[in-house]
Design a protein around this nucleic acid. Structure first.
Lengths: 351, 351
DNA sequence: ATTAGCACTCGGAAGTGCAGAGTGCTAAAA
DNA sequence: TTTTAGCACTCTGCACTTCCGAGTGCTAAT
């Protein structure tokens, strides 16, 4: 634990650097409210902070800049989250599209709202709830030997895919399909659908197996697609503006375009302890060593299902962004819970 | 019409500049195959070309660089399209996802294939065929007072939206809905669905009007969404690498993020004369004055319905890109026509 | 423990000089 | 009349130096 005065100085350095982007020198801190010491004393403290690794100087004759450890100490011990003003709330909320009722749409627009609000890049994932169950499966004929299969889950995810059959689609076939689907798929968790399950099912069909198996394979594909949470990234071009990325912004953008690592990033949260802040190399990718992420998980009912957050330079206003993202997450959780929780307790009717 | 020799010199300048990105000087052209003149003569010709506005020099002691007019002349009169190699074709094709049968998916992946192939940004639009008709509309109950409405068109576009009703959804209601939909919507062109049509329909419903009108409003929304072609843009970050955008790449990316002008860009083609090349300020936006576009329209059957193309710096390899994009367009047209044309001649069966 | 004072260090801006590339022009050659 | 060789000229980009200001660490005094 650092001594009081040193803490205050560190906090001041971090906050001022966040605001101005310039290294901050000892003189600039002389008239900190409630800190009546000369610049020389401050210099001594700064030397200590430097020795302890919380701040550093870009070059001998420059002021100090927080190190990653400095940000971390600030975030853990010194920062006090800002109160969100009414106008901020409205700004965050205004971009959301919940009227469509589509969670994917909501998360997409939530990301964009964050982009507008923060001027950073935003990342969001659609719900991936292992407790989700199959709500409905429809077959819609498109041409004699082709049909669209539509899958709907209890978390509101809707996926569809075209499927070619080997034989013409008759009304009989449709009825049979609807019957099998109703008996074998409705209400079961997505995780129960897998290759083995499909194979045993097809094997049990007897004569019809040949003509219908493509349909069930398509169902498996759809379940797969619905289980995997989609990742939305937006506002990447905002990052170009920040001088910390100056010349190698392209490298960062390229990294962000690859989907795989992104999935890791949002999913790797230890638990559902709410909001998570990762500074610089705490994100385990070299490309992010100059970036920070603030990630928050949203829930449907009591299950954490997805995440939303931002990516930007380590020099970001944590004390304001944390409550903002928390606020947004709360809205999302509430809305999704309202819409998709009620169903689990009441789905008896069927088409 | 320029004299033979001057044409050849202009073509050489354009091609060499495209390849190297460096201004090309008179000496570099001395040993052009079949052009046996000294650098001095070439200098004279270059002076002429400069006077006519086809080339320019960045500064006194630099070589020449094509102007916009120079590129235009080259593209119109001098360029001869490259033959596509087998490997090129495979590279283009390999990224396409036509197995899903979903045109939106196909166009999306086609854009990404172009991004990989060209290292530029790609733009593509989903089919928007004014002749498309409604193929199917399904209502899928989600909770007592909420249903998903799913719309499918003859061009394979699938749209869905959640809809809240004022009264609980009963089996009766579903049957009534299915009946009305079948009678009033199946097989009619998208353009026939509008506010007036919906209002008269609802008015004719009598007692049921109140409970069902939200459903039909949702249908109108879906039709609207299906009529409008979606624009996919990808590979923007590729553009960062080109030095012609050096410091103001952010400006271009911001421009590309706004959707409205993009729609203009792809739709504004004069006619369906196949491929269209727009160089620099021929795109009417100031942000694109250093960029070129190559846009090609694809067709379903005989109707031009959407476009796909690239955006990059004016210094792009037109002679190779034009046939590549043409090839890709042909694949798309062929596939979409195969899948979605046959239906128009054969949709009798229904669920 | 704090402060004033001072020498020291370093980055960035501005200025200087130089080599190289490419041009336009002129006068001779074809 | 067209082409060519030769040359003076212009301009960029790079390397090098100089200089100023900001900020530091250290020392000696309070």
């Amino acid at each position: 634990m650092l001594p009081q005065r040193r803490q205050r100085i560190l906090a001041a350095i971090v906050e001022q650097y966040i605001e101005t982007g310039e290294p901050v020198g000892s003189k600039a801190l002389q008239n900190l409210p409630g800190l009546d010491v000369s610049s020389a004393t401050i210099r001594n403290e700064m030397a200590e902070l430097t020795a302890q690794g919380f701040i550093t100087q870009p070059h001998t004759s420059a002021g100090r800049v927080p190190t990653q450890a400095g940000y971390r100490y600030y975030v853990d011990n010194l920062m006090q989250p800002a109160e969100l003003g009414e106008s901020d709330r409205r700004r965050i909320e205004s971009g959301l599209d919940y009227r469509s009722g589509d969670p994917e749409q909501l998360l997409q627009t939530a990301g964009e709202a964050l982009v507008d609000f923060t001027n950073f890049a935003a990342i969001s994932t659609t719900p991936a709830d292992e407790h989700a169950v199959i709500k409905n499966i429809e077959m819609v004929p498109v041409s004699p030997k082709m049909a669209m299969i539509v899958l709907l889950t209890s978390t509101g995810i809707l996926k569809s895919k075209a499927c070619r059959t080997d034989v013409p689609i008759t009304v009989d076939l449709q009825d049979a399909f609807a019957d099998i689907v109703r008996r074998n798929f409705f209400g079961i968790p997505l995780s129960d659908v897998n290759t083995v399950m499909i194979q045993t099912l097809v094997a049990g069909l007897g004569a019809k197996a040949l003509s219908m198996s493509p349909l069930f394979v398509t169902i498996a594909d759809l379940v797969e697609a619905a289980s995997v949470s989609e990742i939305n990234l937006s506002g990447q071009s905002n990052l170009l503006g920040y001088k910390e990325y100056n010349d190698n912004a392209g490298q960062l953008l390229d990294f962000l375009h690859r989907e795989e690592p992104l999935g890791m990033l949002v999913s790797s949260g230890d638990s559902d302890t709410g909001i998570e802040i990762r500074i610089g190399s705490e994100n385990r990718y070299k490309e992010l060593e100059n970036s920070s992420m603030i990630i928050s998980k949203y829930k449907i009912g009591d299950n954490a299902t997805g995440a939303i957050g931002i990516i930007g330079p380590t020099r970001m206003n944590y004390s304001k962004l944390v409550p903002s993202i928390k606020y947004l997450t709360d809205i999302i959780s509430k809305f999704l819970s309202d819409v998709y929780e009620e169903e689990s307790s009441s789905d008896e009717e069927e088409s």
